[in-house]
């Protein structure tokens, strides 16, 4: 069976020049050898701290930046090889909602034009049919068709995010990339928007790739989670299994650093040493070893760990602990 979205060894390296005359060139490995699969109608969360490469990965899926190496397929089609009408089809199938609803809507376009843009570019619809589609999309996100005449600045943050969502769903895409879709919103608005995403998914059957740093959002939205650290995946699996029994020390630290409203246990939180190292000069061996609370010795600092299956099914982890090394 062909998987819906398949990503294989995707990498993105950025050259950075330093020094007064920009003569020294370094490579930043923003994303390094990332592979995963996603089934249709499911939600995958990319989780990690700033600089871990989750947004770069999402932008590659959106074809906003080209991968340095690796490939990915949507419904069995190699996305890198798409041209002409197939590329156009990809543009309608894959949509995005960005973090900041103040930056993601052009201030000089009316809401109707913002929502209709995708249809104008990719479909040949009559004016009447287009208006109908736009009105439907506005209604699906809880706005009124009248709102189409207004400009974005007449709306609050939550409503603006609804406009962005309407413009993402108007072409009935199969995959929507959500880049921190609620983190710029107020607490009381976040749950409205998260619920809206769930409603849209059950109505249209689309899949989501959510970029998130908030673990509560992740647990609520995602079926599967990919944890990233310094450009690499370190743990991947079903959300429930990973939140209930995280195996990678970084995931454990991340979960314990989240400050829940109700503490479920009195375990003291894991406080990590230091900060995320520079991706220009990543650590040897396991990328996480300089900060790892479960560091087990030379193997961590000299050998990069391979993927291994965790105790439960549908859950993989990249750590020496639990292998013959550990």
């Amino acid at each position: 069976m062909i998987s819906f979205l398949k990503v294989e060894n995707l990498s993105k390296h950025f050259p950075v020049r330093t020094g007064i005359f920009h003569r020294k060139e370094h490579i930043v490995r923003a994303v390094q050898d990332v592979s995963f699969e996603l089934e249709e109608g499911q939600t995958l969360a990319l989780v990690g701290e700033s600089g871990c490469g989750k947004t770069t990965l999402a932008w590659m899926l959106l074809k906003l930046i080209e991968p340095t190496s690796g490939r990915f397929w949507l419904n069995g089609q190699d996305v890198a090889e798409l041209t002409g009408p197939d590329l156009r089809q990809y543009r309608t199938n894959v949509q995005a909602v960005f973090q900041d609803p103040w930056a993601s809507l052009s201030p000089r376009m009316r809401v109707f034009d913002i929502v209709a843009e995708g249809l104008r570019l990719n479909d040949n619809l009559s004016d009447g049919a287009m208006t109908k589609r736009v009105d439907e999309a506005l209604c699906s996100v809880g706005l009124r068709p009248d709102d189409g005449h207004k400009f974005p600045h007449e709306f609050s943050g939550g409503q603006r995010q609804r406009i962005a969502i309407a413009s993402a769903i108007v072409q009935r895409p199969k995959l929507i990339i959500l880049d921190e879709p609620v983190s710029a919103l107020d607490v009381s608005i976040r749950s409205q928007i998260m619920n809206l995403f769930k409603d849209i998914q059950s109505e249209f059957g689309c899949s989501y790739v959510v970029v998130a740093h908030d673990l509560g959002t992740t647990r609520y939205m995602a079926d599967r989670v990919a944890v990233m650290y310094l450009g690499s995946l370190v743990e991947f699996g079903s959300t429930d299994k990973m939140f209930d029994a995280p195996e990678h020390p970084y995931t454990q630290a991340l979960l314990s650093a989240a400050l829940p409203i109700q503490k479920s246990d009195d375990k003291p939180p894991i406080v990590l040493r230091g900060e995320v190292p520079s991706p220009v000069n990543p650590p040897s061996g396991c990328l996480f070893h300089p900060r790892c609370q479960s560091f087990i010795g030379d193997v961590c600092s000299s050998n990069a760990p391979n993927w291994r299956k965790s105790g439960s099914a549908d859950h993989w982890v990249r750590c020496h602990i639990g292998t013959e090394w550990g």
């Binding site: 932008w59 959106l62 074809k63 906003l64 590329l87 156009r88 543009r91 309608t92 894959v94 949509q95 995005a96 960005f98 973090q99 900041d100 930056a103 993601s104 809507l105 052009s106 201030p107 000089r108 376009m109 843009e117 995708g118 570019l121 990719n122 962005a164 413009s167």
Partner: peptide, 28 residues
């Protein structure tokens, strides 16, 4: 660099269209 330009690209807008319909109205 703003997200609305990225969004226009995701929708498949050409460079010409982005300059004309997204950037220009904001610098008038």
């Amino acid at each position: 660099e703003l997200d609305f330009v990225a969004r226009a690209r995701v929708l498949g807008a050409s460079e010409y269209r982005i300059m004309w319909k997204y950037i220009l109205p904001n610098i008038v």
